[in-house]
Amino acid sequence: MKKKHFSTIYLVLVFLLLYIPIFYLIFYSFNKGGDMNRFTGFTWQHYLDLFADQRMLIIVLDTLLLALLSSLIATLVGTMGAIGIAARKQKKVKSALLTLNNVLMVSPDVIIGASFLILFTALGISLGFGSVLISHIAFSIPIVVLLVLPKVNEMDSSLINAAMDLGATRWQTFSRVIVPFIAPGIFSGFFMAFTYSLDDFAVTFFVTGNGFATLAVEIYSRARQGISLEINALSAVMFLFALILVVGYYFIEQYSQSRRKRKSGKSTLGTEVMLP
């Protein structure tokens, strides 16, 4: 019993540690005084400033557009790549392709950023929205491949043969049989690519040039100038956004899990969900 208490206290402490800085930011976003030192009174002023800040709003929209476009294109290329890799018969070619696929997953962001900067300069591509978009597509493709590939491998080839035997064209087989089967992998790939793009700072910082900024780059340049409670307000909005996403994801998962369980008639075991 005593041990149980200790572990609960330890966990609570770690969670406090993880959340204190975030709540600290959010708390001071309501501060009437201009800094994060003394709370002098409650105000919505910093939120009003944020929503009146044209430049910031454009940057937010740009960031979302960039994330959406890059993740869509990365999902398309990555899914096609995963299908292609799965179709390779030779083991050596397969593992070579996978190794190349993982290079961008393991290299540090500064290396990706610096080497892409050299590449764009060598190719004569000017820095801006285009170069950032290309970079985000490039670093999102490998994760899409990794998430789609297991689904493609899971697929029984007799499904494809059956479709062909029943007279489906290649396109029909692809769009009506293959894609629906691997759809869960495609969705999680898209979702991850979207998160990567929103989250990235280092790569963008290298290839963005002067005219274009994403949210992360903007926060960096403002934070270098010191404290502005508008950033606090922004972090509160972003925390709320992430919270809604996470909670929504949790409940959708719980719901589909219990449905799956009910269908297969298994008992509901909480821990079973976590096992890969």
């Binding site: 966990l11 969670f15 993880l18 959340y19 800085p21 975030i22 600290y24 930011l25 001071y28 800094d35 994060m36 030192n37 998160t195 929103l198 989250d199 700072f201 949210l215 992360a216 926060i219 960096y220 934070a223 010191g226 404290i227 950033i231 922004l234 972090s235 972003m238 925390f239 992430a242 919270l243 996403l245 996470v246 994801y249 949790y250 998962e253 719980q254 909480g270 821990t271 969900v273 976590m274």
Partner: peptide, 26 residues
């Protein structure tokens, strides 16, 4: 466990720059 785990993952979804910025204040 799933709920606890989501609570661990949630901070990773807050942009790294914002978390660093919090420490400038602290």
């Amino acid at each position: 466990q799933q709920l606890w785990l989501l609570l661990i993952i949630l901070p990773t979804w807050i942009n790294l720059l914002l978390k660093t910025y919090a420490f400038i204040g602290l």
